[in-house]
Design a protein around this nucleic acid. Structure first.
Lengths: 147, 147
DNA sequence: AGAATAAATGCGCATTATTTGCAAATTAAA
DNA sequence: TTTAATTTGCAAATAATGCGCATTTATTCT
């Protein structure tokens, strides 16, 4: 009997039953370095030969987000929900406005700021979302000629 | 002949024709201190007695975003696009995860960070989106009792 | 292991958010 | 004001997501 990855184990801890769809979805998110939309996850499941229904994928992703095993997010110019594995070390993305490519950013410059904000507003800060937008070298090149 | 507000004038500059729907929408966004969804804008138009079709509202908001007169954004847990007037002074929001209330934050702690990132990635940074999530005092109170 | 129980999934359909095609109306230019 | 180019209205198409209920599956209990 093999136990799943560090992340798949989260299912038990969160009181969710361990089903093949859920384990598979966590696996897929774990492999992906970037956030995924429900239908992308769905396609991956198919490719892995795991039977699943799109509604189920939505339900699972919502449930995982509820339990904080994954984060639900959305980026500008893309009106659908994206999901990423909650690796605790939270991430930020650099998004190219030209080709829409998404790159993860390492360092987060906001810890101190949040403290200050808590003091100032009496909110309990739970987290934040930071994405940075710009143009990647390739798209810069195209713009220089094109436009 | 009266000329519109600072923001309505942006229409000419951007090469968009000045129609009553567009001017009205810019006006509505200008009055609103918070980002609005297409259907909220639509309702405001009705209330002001300005005839408009929801598709037109979507098209106008998209067009204005295209021309950078407004910013299109989206926040976690709300899967629809939100639009706010581009006041150049960019804004960040503090979102309550309980009641979903949105509050604007004044100061932006990211200027220096962007410089560094540009150098590091060769991207041309155009801007960023930062939202901070937490629980407002009221919702904190509820949680303390409830849950 | 087998039965009981609670939870999860599949499937088809309902909704909500957004987009599109095309004819009619409107704006800016001449 | 006639024209040419946009823009709008309307209706119908998509896209993304959610829901209800019968069936299946994961855990618990024996």
């Amino acid at each position: 009997m093999d136990h799943g990855s560090e992340f798949e184990d989260g299912l038990k801890r969160s009181g969710l039953k361990k089903t093949k769809q859920r384990t598979a979805i966590l696996g897929i998110l774990e492999e992906s370095q970037l956030p995924m939309a429900a239908d992308q996850v769905f396609i991956q499941l198919k490719e892995k030969g795991i039977p699943a229904n799109l509604s189920t994928v939505y339900r699972i992703l919502e449930a995982l987000a509820e339990k904080k095993l994954v984060n639900k997010l959305s980026i500008v110019g893309d009106n659908r929900g994206l999901f990423e594995l909650n690796r605790m070390a939270h991430r930020h993305y650099l998004v190219c406005l030209g080709c829409k490519k998404i790159t993860a950013i390492e360092h987060c410059p906001l810890e101190d700021y949040e403290k200050a904000l808590e003091a100032e507003t009496s909110y309990k800060i739970a987290g934040h979302k930071l994405d940075i937008y710009g143009y990647c070298p390739k798209c810069l090149e195209k713009r220089r000629k094109g436009s």
